[in-house]
């Protein structure tokens, strides 16, 4: 009777965007008279931080301070279509639509600035809300002045429309040939576990992962996804089922009393590194990271259990009961 240490690895890919594509998102941007920019979206923040990363992308693309960008999302009367938040698509799709809208608004802004400054628009630089003539930084103005002039002197709009659509791929029903993704993010997780061969209990000691997510818009929030996914993956591997005797319906769960998910007491050591290899079609090279973080921990843990006690338990969740049954079967085989 002993506790056995094991280590397992798993390397995974994850597609960005809806399978086969065909999932558009639009954005509108307009400039207020004093230089604030409102980004109008019908997209949803589930807690992953979309409202924040979109403000970052808009500020970057417009060339204005982060605080001057307002993200107004979640109202179908005031914003155009978004397919929704799922399939690790939001930052990729919404971000691309916002960059397209920002580019149009930025061009409109610089056209007015050029008129006001008596310069060619292509000679103007817009950085952090300041506008100056390339090579002549003393010839300068700012977004505040240009926005006022556009509204009250020239009668010009400063706004932009954006959409991103990966056109829907066909799928050959005979071969399955299709274009299933926009890009692929990747991850490798190393799980370390301790398995008690007397009780069948599994303790996950450590989940260490390397992620490659294109580009991080907000590294702390990427880390937030990685850590949360590690815990959800561990939970999926070891704890969760609606039907403990699936496919039978007996003992189905009604509450958090029977449906077990981790608490603050169940958290292993979680470490990660993030690599950035920008994708060709994501906003600033983004790849979707939302869903994938709960994936690699699952097989890494199952592989670590095999490493620890030499049994394959590949029917999730890996409960102590299943581990003990597998150990018993193994001991019967060897005797």
């Amino acid at each position: 009777m002993a506790k056995h240490y094991g280590r397992g690895i798993a390397a995974v890919n994850y597609p960005t965007g809806m399978n086969l594509g065909g999932d558009p998102t639009q954005a509108l941007i307009f400039c207020q008279p004093t230089g604030g920019f409102s980004v109008k979206l019908a997209s949803t923040d589930l807690g992953q931080g979309l409202k924040t990363v979109i403000a970052q992308i808009a500020a970057e693309a417009l060339g204005v301070p982060f605080d001057s960008v307002i993200v107004d999302t979640g109202d179908t009367d005031s914003a155009p279509h978004c397919m929704g938040t799922f399939a690790s698509r939001a930052t990729h799709r919404v971000g691309n639509a916002v960059i397209m809208a920002a580019n149009e608004a930025r061009k409109a802004l610089l056209d007015v600035a050029a008129e006001e400054m008596e310069a060619a628009p292509e000679d103007l630089v817009l950085e952090n809300g300041e506008i100056y003539v390339k090579g002549a930084p003393e010839r300068k103005t700012n977004v505040f002045n240009v926005a006022l002039a556009a509204h009250f002197k020239y009668g010009k709009t400063i706004s932009g429309r954006g959409i991103y659509l990966k056109q829907k791929s066909s799928l050959d029903p005979e071969t399955g040939a299709c274009d299933p993704d926009s890009t692929e993010a990747h991850a490798t997780t190393v799980a370390e576990v301790e398995v008690d061969d007397e009780t069948g209990e599994i303790k996950v000691l450590r989940l260490a992962s390397a992620y490659e997510v294109g580009r991080q818009i907000n590294p702390e929030m990427v880390k937030g996804q990685i850590v949360s996914g590690a815990v959800m993956g561990m939970s999926h591997a070891l704890m969760e089922t609606v039907f403990p005797y699936y496919p039978a319906l007996d003992h189905h769960t009604y509450s958090f009393g029977e449906y077990i998910i981790p608490t603050a007491l169940d958290i292993p050591e979680i470490e990660s590194v993030v690599l950035e290899y920008p994708s060709s079609n994501g906003p600033y090279g983004v790849k979707g990271v939302g869903e994938m973080t709960a994936n690699s921990p699952i097989p890494a843990i199952v592989n670590a259990i095999y490493d620890a006690v030499g049994v394959w338990v590949t029917d999730l969740p890996v409960t102590p009961e299943k581990v003990l049954r597998a150990l018993e079967e193994k001991s019967l085989e060897t005797h």
Binding site: V227, S228, M232, F256, I261, T263, A264, I267, I270
Partner: peptide
């Protein structure tokens, strides 16, 4: 905190 569930963060930041 063991009686307080969080499904998003994985508790570490908390």
């Amino acid at each position: 905190l063991a009686g307080n569930l969080c499904r998003c963060t994985g508790y570490v930041t908390i």
